[in-house]
């Protein structure tokens, strides 16, 4: 994973963003610092690169226009993550992708297809995992991604999604069970 040439702290970025003279430099550092983490988060949610690129660019444009509203009550990354998540959800809703694919409709078909394969290697397991995620309901997929891939604590997830930590735990557990069942072809 590529990192910015010069590591710069959140405080330094915010300081640069506070001054009109250094605002653009600060914004550039912000993008360089967080773009990859946000990209993979968005990409896991929306699927392909082109869509992820659109969503991420929209996300950064929103950040550029509203960074002065950032109240520093949470970490900068949590705030950015929330914006990126909302952008991705808006994008998905607009495209009605989830409406076209529900776990009930497609799981059986894909699972049967996968059952026919005799041997599952590591790469295939990953493939199945990603396929299973595609079929999860939006909220469960989001929670699974945040916990499994981005390794956020339940509290951080709660800050982003505005859902109680208890509900998030339940959602993650359900998602894990569904993904496992899909991979096993149950």
């Amino acid at each position: 994973m590529q990192t910015p040439l010069t590591a710069i702290s959140e405080e330094q970025i915010l300081k640069l963003l506070d001054e009109p003279r250094t605002f653009e430099q600060g914004f550039r550092f912000l993008m360089e610092q967080y773009q990859e983490r946000l990209y993979w988060h968005v990409r896991r949610l929306v699927g392909g690169h082109e869509d992820a690129n659109d969503v991420l660019q929209n996300c950064f444009i929103k950040v550029y226009r509203s960074i002065r509203d950032f109240e520093k009550k949470s970490k900068l990354y949590t705030w950015l993550y929330r914006i990126a998540t909302n952008e991705a959800i808006t994008f998905l809703n607009q495209k009605k992708r989830l409406a076209a694919s529900s776990i009930d409709d497609e799981e059986r078909h894909l699972a049967n297809q996968l059952k026919a394969e005799a041997y599952i290697d590591g790469e295939e397991l990953q493939q199945r995992l990603l396929m299973a995620l595609e079929l999860l309901p939006e909220k469960q997929r989001l929670v699974f991604n945040m916990r499994y891939f981005d390794e956020l604590s339940y509290q951080e997830m709660s800050d982003v999604l505005g859902t109680s930590t208890g509900a998030l735990k339940a959602s993650f557990h359900h998602a894990v069970k569904k993904v496992e069942a899909f991979i096993r072809g149950d």
Binding site: M31, H49, N53, L56
Partner: peptide
């Protein structure tokens, strides 16, 4: 991600 995508993204956004 496409090659050099992250190098060019900040410029694209700006």
């Amino acid at each position: 991600a496409p090659e050099a995508y992250f190098q060019s993204l900040p410029d694209d956004v700006l």
